[in-house]
Design a protein around this nucleic acid. Structure first.
Lengths: 342, 342
DNA sequence: GTGAAAGCGCTAACAA
DNA sequence: TTGTTAGCGCTTTCAC
């Protein structure tokens, strides 16, 4: 069996309590004793059993992280931020992927709640009522979602959409399409709302092209609707969707950005790799992750402190390859489509 | 405080032990009693405290997973496989990303060892001696690495490389370059070995182009060396590297596959998305993840069972658009390079 | 400043 | 089949 606190105590000639104190509250123990204990502990390779400690302190030193889909490159970036920040404060991170199943989320919260000090819900798809239930089970920090007074880290979607629309309108686009993500996604609602506002302000028509899976395949499926619409530019729910759209457009012989301008959201690495590179709204992913951990730890250590609970990070439009509709505006979309069939 | 086993016992009119048994070993408890206990437990929303349970059983119900870099899409796929399989057996997964720092690995193993029943080391970069030390600390399963008798799940790199070389040789290539990954990567050594053997057999010259970071940027950096070499085809350490190479080649005006054939390894999603789509050696990523969990759980539950400890999964060459005939072999690379500067 | 004792929530002997 | 007892490794009163 592993070396316990009693082994250390015996070897150092003190009581287990003193060892405990030397490790947890070093300042209240005599300097000489402390040094000796620490040296012995180190020499024996003593590692406190966190489960036993947790049993009495009620803190586990673990953080839970629940997210929809690790295969979407957006999430690994957030995870990396969360992890590095958590490890810095000596927390370990349980990661759970729901595979975009909204109903799996609450179940995971329940089974994780007892084993962690708090949970970070990244882009949760569950309903607000479930969110409240989750927050009642354990401290919760939301990423990419706002719900009442639950602590959260989100991004300024409205401003991001404003930047997109102003950019496209400046290029001369008058009809912009939006490929929405899952209905259960808070971001999709926020982005739609931002687009509506911005389009109104810029006197641009917004065409809702329906909800699609937030994946490469979702973008491919959305292509058909884009082609039969009369839009000259499209904003996709995220970069993955935009990439799927781009790929199908190329197969159909539609030139991007010549025939159609496409804008994504997230700035995943792939977005600048593909050709043509994708114009996208950048989101500070790692930073959001780190921030969410900061927030959670503050909550845990100083629940009554003067903390700001609702954080909103900036977004930034990265213009890569978009053009105005001048090149293709005389050509009717259906003509585009037929040409693709030739 | 949360509802404990004593609350359930009291409410059901039995002793805590009976509740414990009803939950852990249902068969040895009277059917009627069991039903009642289970109903009460459910009604009270009882969730066993796993830390307390672990304190006495010595099992935590947790698995640790350590990997080099979540930003490489290869790893999220493995993680997904690991997670879904682990959750099926009611294990939670700690995920830790080392950011490609070989020295962080053993430290993570040490700090995780006490909190988990076992650790899966995915593509570990640490030395064999450290690996042995890690395996002495807690049950360990290796993914993408073999080391002595430590249980492992790897892929048949040699066969994958054989498929690649035969394909390229069949297209007429006589000089093939290899962009190696980190020196500390077991896969890079295996792949090199496989290439050497296969090139010998096919009478093809293998040119080692040096070690590069296993990232998109690494591939970009490798481009220079590819250009000044006389190879007509390149095998990259992984798809990310191949993609970086592809991107830089396009910038330099080098036509792929016209001027140069490129082959990646991993079959990450991106590899079929980019244009031209990347020829790659497919690796069963999720399957490897699932298999590693199976193996670990077998180890934990039946350490002396008739288990096969060393698993090797098949690889498969997926021919896409980045490979073609060596039609350019008469043109000297330096000419290619100059043409790119025009 | 340090030790003795109690107990966190649970399971595993041992009795009954 | 069930209850009683003890104790996993640790922290935390409460004495001294």
């Amino acid at each position: 069996m592993a070396v316990t606190i009693r082994d250390v105590a015996k070897a150092a000639g003190v009581s287990p309590s003193t060892v405990s104190r030397a490790l947890s509250t070093p300042d209240i123990v005599d300097a000489a004793t402390r040094e000796r204990v620490l040296r012995v502990a180190d020499h024996l390779g003593y590692q406190p059993n966190r489960a036993a400690r947790g049993l009495i302190t009620g803190r586990t030193g673990n953080i839970g992280l629940i997210l929809p889909d690790l295969a979407n490159p957006f999430f690994p970036s957030v995870v990396k931020g969360i992890q590095s920040q958590a490890h810095e404060s000596d927390y370990q991170v349980f990661v759970a992927d729901t595979d975009e199943d909204p109903y799996a989320e609450l179940g995971l919260v329940r089974s994780l709640a007892k084993q962690v000090d708090g949970i970070i819900l990244c882009s949760p798809r569950m309903k607000s009522s479930e969110l409240r239930e989750a927050a009642g089970l354990t401290p919760v920090v939301l990423v990419n979602r706002k719900a009442g007074s639950i602590p959260s880290v989100s991004v300024d979607n409205a401003d991001g959409m404003r930047q997109v629309v102003e950019h496209l309108a400046g290029l001369g686009h008058r009809q912009i399409g939006f490929i929405a993500g899952p209905r259960s996604s808070w971001s999709t609602k926020e982005r739609l709302r931002g687009l509506v506002t911005a389009c109104d302000a810029s006197n641009v028509e917004l065409v809702e092209l329906g909800n699609f899976a937030p994946t490469f395949e979702g973008g491919a499926e959305a292509a058909e609707g884009v082609l039969i619409s009369r839009v000259t530019a499209v904003v996709a729910y995220n970069d993955l969707v935009a990439l799927g759209l781009l790929n199908t457009m190329r197969q159909r012989g539609v030139d991007v950005p010549g025939d159609l301008s496409v804008v994504g959201i997230d700035n995943i690495q792939m977005s600048r790799v593909v050709h043509p590179a994708l114009t996208t709204v950048s989101i500070p992913k790692e930073r959001a992750g780190r921030r969410s951990v900061d927030l959670l730890i503050q909550l845990l250590t100083d629940p009554s402190g003067p903390t700001k609970f609702i954080h909103e990070l900036p977004t930034e439009l990265l213009v890569r390859q978009t053009t105005g509709p001048a090149a293709h505006q005389k050509q009717h979309p259906s003509a585009r489509r037929q040409s693709a069939h030739q």
